[in-house]
Design a protein around this nucleic acid. Structure first.
Lengths: 287, 287
DNA sequence: GCCAAATATGAAAATAATTTAGATAAGAGG
DNA sequence: CCTCTTATCTAAATTATTTTCATATTTGGC
């Protein structure tokens, strides 16, 4: 957890002096991150030792350490904590979206369970057939993305975003098959049903979703993505960025399971593209 | 430009002592960001004043300021600059991907032309019909994403990833229509042809692509995304994150063009989803 | 190759920043 | 109202950083 979030959490337990310090940190980040301990103390109408103690209280070694922690949250906390900018100026909108996206990536990474991801990657790389499920704008993008990333590794994979097809595919699955599905809310009951059905026929199910949700409970393996959502209805879920990163990570880990095969397949695809399109080797894979 | 990038740029002009300092900064970020000036000086086998002068040379007021700048680059430069981590450990892979994604977002935002985006958003919001074009794994995702984000605003939009269809659609376009297409490499000559055709029939074309590329040259309006690509073939283009952010920004700006209509459409979709799915109002829009 | 000027670097001193220690004040519980 | 605990401050000690000045090194001209 980053330091600004911690400050917000513990705000109630702070003493008067500490509250004044916390206030400045939360409201005038730019000042705080550049201030010396004396300047910060003065502004909070507090003595420097109080600031030192405040830092220790937050598990920092000393003021310098505290400052570093603070500066590190640049993209993480900062504007996110006080969402005052409800501006519609293009510059502000861009900054808000980029900040939230970076934030989502940070929070996702912070809570990321690498061991579990590795387990899932191993399963994927050894599977018979992989079916990627997801519905709605966001999760269907993830399903297609899984397809797009995994087929390059020489894995057998297909994406399906249609509930009825999902049920039929689940019913027809074999024990070596994997059903990997995502649901941002965790409340896609159709997906949960497909998981249940797939498990009944002996296939393995993997959920990319909120932990402890309906979908999570229905799956064998869960890769949790738990992020708070903003409340401006115009702002699409920055959570997509976290899911996309998760897909990338899984694809990479799966590739490393059998690097030689993956390399061969990738080279082959690339060669095809280059030969077909133009002579330029700088052609990106799958533009 | 962030401080680590600046250090890398100016590396040649550094003196011996400065080079030793720079080396530590670039290779052991974690040490440097936590070190005092004396520790850093010792490690670089240099005197503290030399470190101070080094900081000034980089336009920092003093060592403290320098440390803050350094800590701020947490997500920006850091490991990206020295891609030494060719590790296949799950933890390292995850960190690498997340860092590169955040980096891509940062670099994109840094070069972002808000005014041009606003112009494009205005065009989109006033258009007759919007056609989103893109081919290959990445750009087709962007095309679908444009569809997914724009239809919610009450705009008439469709996505097309098939070259032949794209040509037919372009030929059938009317003057009020918009063709918006993406190409990560800028070398999708089919897309360029579709743009040319669309312009001949009087439609407006918008390219999300590398500046000065083939595709960029074929379009009326260009929203440039110029990012360096990593060289590990297993690592998919983190550029996708930048494109996704660009789509989000465009959709938001378009929404603000006519907020009342957009709000109404969004509410309507949300209501439908909630009524159809479950009673829970926390259902995310388009899961 | 030698010299002057410019530049780079370090040692020591000066300054500034931070922490510690001890003292005092404020508040809680009896 | 007193005692104990906690919070806070002042002042001293420590530590970190910067300035100053002396020395060394490099650069470019002859």
């Amino acid at each position: 957890m980053d330091i600004l979030a911690r400050i917000q959490n513990e705000q109630e337990q702070f003493s008067q002096s500490e509250k004044r310090i916390a206030d400045i940190l939360l409201n005038d980040f730019d000042f705080a991150v550049n201030a010396s301990i004396v300047e910060l103390a003065e502004r909070a109408e507090v003595s420097p030792p109080t600031v030192t103690r405040f830092c220790r209280r937050l598990n920092c070694q000393n003021y310098a350490d505290f400052k570093v922690q603070l500066a590190k949250t640049m993209f993480v906390g900062a504007r996110y904590l006080n969402p005052g900018t409800r501006s519609t100026e293009p510059v502000d909108v861009a900054e808000d979206i980029v900040t939230k996206a970076q934030n989502a990536l940070y929070l996702f990474h912070d809570a990321f369970d690498a061991a579990k991801a590795q387990t899932v990657a191993e399963l994927l790389s050894r599977s018979g057939m992989i079916h990627a499920f997801g519905s709605g704008g966001n999760s269907s993008m993830i399903a297609h993305e899984l397809h797009n990333r995994l087929f390059r590794l020489g894995l057998r994979v297909s994406a399906c975003t249609d509930y009825h097809m999902q049920m039929m595919i689940a019913a027809a699955a074999r024990p070596a098959d994997m059903i990997i599905g995502s649901s941002f809310s965790g409340r896609n009951s159709e997906l949960a049903k497909a998981f249940t059905l797939a498990r009944e026929v002996g296939a393995t199910t993997i959920a990319l979703t909120q932990s402890d949700s309906l979908v999570a409970k229905a799956a064998d393996h869960v890769l949790a993505v738990d992020l708070p959502e903003g409340n401006n209805i115009f702002r699409p879920t920055s959570t997509r960025f976290a899911y996309l990163a998760l897909v990338d990570i899984l694809a990479n880990l799966a590739a490393y399971q059998n690097p030689s095969q993956a390399t061969v397949t990738l080279r082959h695809i690339k060669h095809q593209l280059v030969a077909h399109r133009d002579e330029d080797d700088r052609q990106l894979l799958g533009d």
